[in-house]
Amino acid sequence: MFRQTPIRTGAGIALIAGLAIHASRGGYFDREIVIEIAILAMLAISLDIVAGFGRMISLCHGAIFGLAAYGYGTAIVKFGLPPSTGLVIGIALAIAFGALVGAICAGTVGIFYIMATLAFGQIAYVLIFESRWLGGDDGMTGVRRMDLSLIGLNMRDSLTFALVCLAVLVLVYIAAAVVLRSSFGRTLSGIHANEARMRAVGINTRMHKTAAFAFSAALAGIAGVLKAQHTMFVSPELLFWTLSGEVLIIVILGGIGTLIGPAIGATLLVLLKHEVSHYTVYWHVVVGAVLILAVLAGGRGLFGEFEYRLARWRARRRARRGTGGAADA
């Protein structure tokens, strides 16, 4: 079950503050990195909702993310709609696709869930890749950013855009935390722990799993719409399954089921990839090795491991005090 502990709040605030400072004090490329981190962190948080709290390991979150980006881009480029409408269309598309996939796959478990989501994601990828109307593999240019000058924000400025992305990341995190702490979230955690038992007590687990997936897709959609605005360009590899795989890596590296861990994982992976690519073009091998080590180390991820050790240390301290008290008496 999800708890918003002071440690998590502290880690979240420190992360956002660190990224904001990095963006405002750094050069142009540091801001780009912060934007990339913020968007990937949103996507990772959205995946953590289903993977970490509902045992739904999705390999189609890249496709959901890409569909939202395409929804936004298509609305603006092909239909000449204003970006605000594009935003709604993009997120709606993500929710619709997420609800559909979530509903169809809700009956499958384990490796079959992974494979089924992979299949649906690849269908979306192939359809967009082969659509000449959407530009095929060349993608679509001319995707504008939203005009927020009414509230005094110049979205074309990279610092402003980076800070907006961080603000949205905070909102996404809060939304996820609120939903997971609600009675719906507790039911979801119950399904995560033992789906058969939840069914036995009369809960419609299929419906809950579908709703959770749709909610997760909405957050992935927000990330996708921001991605389209960031690059001002959309192309099919946003939907390719390896992106879903990378997001899953991020969730695991950061700590599955901790919500803040995936945001930390996104920061780590982007920085790692960036740093390693300075020294060698063979960054795949480094990322692959880090991932393998992370899983072998227990699979709790960086933040998960930290919480685990903290909890163990506290329990031991409490136990020591407990026995000490008994001796006094």
Binding site: I57, I114, I249, Y282, G288, A289, I292, V295, L296, G299
Partner: peptide
């Protein structure tokens, strides 16, 4: 790797072998 992951559940298996794909890709390129 694989002996240790036998009982680790599909997620760990998928991730570790996904990591191996990355490693082998670059080993072949090198």
């Amino acid at each position: 790797l694989i002996r240790r992951l036998r009982h680790a559940g599909p997620l760990s298996q998928v991730l570790v072998t996904f990591g191996l794909i990355f490693v082998f890709l670059d080993v072949i390129r090198i």
